[in-house]
Write a protein that binds this DNA or RNA. Sequence first.
DNA 1: TCACCTCATGAAAGGTATTTTCGGACCGGT
DNA 2: ACCGGTCCGAAAATACCTTTCATGAGGTGA
Lengths: 310, 310
Amino acid sequence: MSSKLKETFTAADRAPAATPPAPGALAAKVRTLVPSMTRSMQRVAEAVAGDPAGSAALTVTGLAERTGTSEATVVRTARILGYPGYRDLRLALAALAAEQAAGRAPAVTADIAVDDPLARVVAKLAHEEAQCLADTAAALDTAQLEAAVGALSAARRVDVYGIGASNLVGQDLVQKLLRIGLIAHAPADPHLAVTNAVQLRAGDVAIAITHSGRTTDVIEPLRVAFEHGATTVAITGRPDGEIAQYADHVLTTSTARESELRPAAMSSRTSQLLVVDCLFIGVAQRTYERAAPALSASYEALAHRHDPRR
Amino acid sequence: MSSKLKETFTAADRAPAATPPAPGALAAKVRTLVPSMTRSMQRVAEAVAGDPAGSAALTVTGLAERTGTSEATVVRTARILGYPGYRDLRLALAALAAEQAAGRAPAVTADIAVDDPLARVVAKLAHEEAQCLADTAAALDTAQLEAAVGALSAARRVDVYGIGASNLVGQDLVQKLLRIGLIAHAPADPHLAVTNAVQLRAGDVAIAITHSGRTTDVIEPLRVAFEHGATTVAITGRPDGEIAQYADHVLTTSTARESELRPAAMSSRTSQLLVVDCLFIGVAQRTYERAAPALSASYEALAHRHDPRR
DNA sequence: TCACCTCATGAAAGGTATTTTCGGACCGGT
DNA sequence: ACCGGTCCGAAAATACCTTTCATGAGGTGA
């Protein structure tokens, strides 16, 4: 593509000269230039302006057919619009289509309805959870987090109490802590939790995870741990709940809007997991000397379970 | 795959992985597919993912030169990424570039460093996970999801196989399914999983969750379930992995960028949970008559555990 | 270690899409 | 009717994309 001779009407496209390949201002450009176009070119220009996405999918021949003109005319139109040829106009059309598609995205704010098609369910869920993450991150008290991380880093032993979905979050944390050499447990049985809590003493850490802040089966072991001198942390959506009475540090999770199909208790999981991840990374940073080798060691050890050939 | 036992190989041909031209999920797609690419293709894939705008401006020959490969390799890469040829990849690149230009491409957050203050850790983690959600949602194959939901809704019994962190995701799903009246299990013990799988038959559903797609302990029970006629679903980050051979439906989770403190396997959890949530909501919608009362019933039943005074 | 096999790879052939050329159709004026 | 001009599309010429195929690197088994 060098500076070859242009067609006879080279002078014509000097008019919109100094016009760089227009990205999104294409519609406007079409409007200003249409009057100076010939009839066939106008048809082409209107077609591309009216349906950028559809036109971008067509070849020069296809667009010529759709507009009832010839390939040559399509190329000439592309030139007038300021592109070196149809190829480049086509790229610009694809870009334009993507741009305006991105523009109308925020239609996902409504609740998930019973009759939503799955594609919308996916979009809404992803959006809600992302929102939840942002809320949690914004509301998280860094000082409390710092304190909790400090306690964990020096802990002899860590207990995590949680029931139901929160217990899964607790186990997630435990799995991670184990990988960097800490001793951690997340008993699912409330009685076992209390039994464990009794063993804790100063220097140990107990973490309770409960969205409502009022789950008796979780409060109880935390209280016991608290009374035995352990450092206690509560991860809850209700920082003023009963659980806070027995927590040295409270980490607040955000509460997403509820909906019938997706109650608050369910969406709290996302928030809790973020907090738990932050705790983990914080501890990993502070104990990096020990943590880094321990991390690689556990991946090494698991490698053959993933690929027996190794 | 020559003539074998009839049931041993009904694998990939049932799921032709009809991947539609990915619009904005290209970066994520590259990440999930790069591991299965050859070296030269990886160079090409990384070039397009790293500089969509720049790459879109190049012809096959140009891109081949820039990546130090041949035209053939570029075309092959485009195919792997799900496009019919380079031409279409190029259009998608232009679209992607426009999209992220319009969306004010969020400054690519650097990896989490050992010396990041906690506040930044929180922000980065939240951002990464949100990104992961968006990627997953964009790349999720709705048809596969639909099929999986359909199978689940009609299932007599559901088994979920997963190990380690993936097992927790499985348990999360099981907890939810139980609440709407399905019979579900997520055995953590691989032997128990196989034992369970043997009990499955046509009309039952088995779901395997593994990021790597190669976890032997998860593949095995899914294979058994597959061979016993159950409908099988794989939730994995490697849709081409061994696990896919035994899966009627494959749901692809996206792979986040790795970092030393937060390996890919760890961040896959977010993605898996989103998929699992979508499955749940889908099933709840389709069995609404049964699900809605069951949901309220379980909350009622738990109420006194949260506030004994009631 | 070596023979053998597999598969990734790029050079070049083969096709398609785009661009250019070229001549005819049309229009208004003489 | 003829002439000078513009507009237009068919088809040739070219640029670009795709496919084929031979080659050699890297791995496998003896």
